[in-house]
């Protein structure tokens, strides 16, 4: 018996997501990468932490890095790869809207990012008491960071032609973002000249939500961070789809 009657565009988008999960994200090398990468970050930072309090201090940073690196790499590479093979053309020619298509293509990376984010959380739960964590805001923050990072990866994918360019270009964005978003150097302690850069980085607001949820230590009002992170998501998606329309549909 058929339980749900899906509309044609829903069937298409669900199957795009399913195919991407099967062919890219659930491949053993990517699963192990998804586990090993956050695990290595976690181990590295937690070993340096002398007290449980310090573990809680570095946890937002480790979560943010795990999401950022997982999402941007995977999406930029998979889309550039499909473009090279011309299989992406098949999707552009399908009778579904570009917005639905790109949401389907990015959903896999978003889920992968969320999965990566919870690896350090699981490790930390064995070492420190996380009962004070605001789980709802933490989860919402992680999802929003995964969304913005994925859309950033999408923006990168639209701007490059080769897989290696996607990787190089991703690093060009990721590393400055890690150091300027207030995760390791608090925003208040950043040199004044660098602070405006921090405020145009979506991760700054994501990191602040994570700090607020884990340590009650945010620098900005949490509602403002949520609103700005959501705005970044929408802006990056609109910009990426506009670029696809102008660059890929010549």
């Amino acid at each position: 018996m058929k339980l749900i009657n899906l509309s044609p565009w829903m069937i298409a988008t669900f199957n795009i997501l399913k195919k991407d999960m099967k062919t890219y994200y659930l491949k053993p090398p990517n699963i192990s990468w998804g586990l090993i990468f956050p695990f290595a970050w976690t181990l590295m930072f937690f070993l340096r932490s002398q007290t449980p309090m310090q573990i809680q201090d570095v946890l937002p940073g480790v979560i943010a890095m795990s999401v950022l690196f997982g999402t941007t790499s995977m999406l930029a590479v998979t889309i550039t790869f499909e473009r090279r093979q011309r299989s992406f053309e098949r999707l552009l020619l399908a009778p579904i809207s570009l917005n639905a298509l790109m949401l389907a293509k990015t959903s896999g990376a978003i889920l992968f990012g969320v999965f990566n984010a919870f690896i350090p959380v699981i490790f930390a739960s064995f070492l420190v008491d996380l009962s004070g964590v605001g789980w709802l805001s933490l989860s919402a923050g992680i999802v929003l960071i995964a969304i913005t990072s994925t859309f950033l990866g999408l923006l990168i994918a639209v701007s490059v032609k080769e897989v290696f360019e996607a990787q190089t270009f991703s690093n060009f964005f990721r590393f400055p973002m890690i150091f300027l978003c207030g995760l390791f150097i608090p925003l208040a302690e950043l040199p004044l000249a660098l602070r405006p850069i921090s405020y145009i980085l979506p991760l700054t607001y994501g990191a602040d939500i994570l700090k607020w949820s884990i340590n009650d230590g945010g620098y900005l009002p949490v509602s403002l961070s949520f609103a700005l992170l959501a705005a970044f998501s929408v802006a990056l998606f609109v910009l990426s789809t506009y670029n696809i329309k102008t660059k890929w549909i010549h």
Binding site: P8, W9, I11, N15, K19, Q85, R86, R90, A94
Partner: peptide, 22 residues
Amino acid sequence: NLYEELDGFNNLCFCASLYGMG
């Protein structure tokens, strides 16, 4: 321009799904 990693059957099924076929 089909998907190199998918088999023939799944390539066809995937393409059909893009047109909303159950």
